[in-house]
Amino acid sequence: MPRQLAFDLPVRPALGREDFFVSPANELALAALDAGGWPQGKMLLLGPEGAGKSHLAQVWAGDTGAQVIAARDITALPLPEPGPMVVEDADRIAGDREAETAIFHLHNHLLAADAPLLLTARRGATHWGLTLPDLKSRMEATATAELMPPDDALLAAVCLKLFADRQLQVTPALIQWLVRRIDRSFAAARAAVAALDAAALQRGRPVTRALAAEVLDTAPHDDA
Rank of each mutant, 00 (worst) to 15 (best):
L30E: 12
L30C: 11
L30G: 05
A31F: 14
W38Y: 02
Q40H: 10
G41E: 02
G41K: 04
M43L: 15
M43W: 13
L44I: 13
L44Q: 11
L45N: 00
L45S: 08
L46C: 07
G47E: 00
P48W: 06
A51T: 00
S54P: 13
S54E: 12
H55K: 08
A57L: 13
Q58T: 14
V59L: 03
V59F: 14
W60R: 04
W60C: 09
G62N: 02
D63A: 15
T64P: 03
V68Q: 05
V68A: 02
A70I: 09
R72V: 13
I74S: 06
I74N: 02
A76K: 07
A76F: 08
L77N: 09
L77M: 14
L77V: 09
P78N: 08
P78L: 01
P78Q: 07
P80Q: 09
P82K: 05
P82R: 04
G83S: 07
G83K: 07
G83N: 04
M85F: 12
V86S: 08
A90L: 15
A90E: 07
R92K: 14
R92Y: 08
A94W: 00
A94Y: 07
R97I: 15
E98K: 14
A99C: 06
A102Y: 04
A102W: 01
I103Y: 04
F104C: 01
L106P: 07
N108P: 02
H109C: 06
H109E: 04
L110M: 01
L111C: 09
A112T: 03
A113G: 01
P116E: 02
P116N: 01
L117E: 01
L119Q: 12
A121Y: 04
A121G: 09
G124C: 09
A125T: 09
T126H: 15
H127Q: 15
H127I: 11
L130K: 08
L135V: 07
K136W: 15
S137C: 13
S137D: 13
A141S: 13
T142K: 01
A145H: 00
A145Q: 07
M148P: 00
P150H: 05
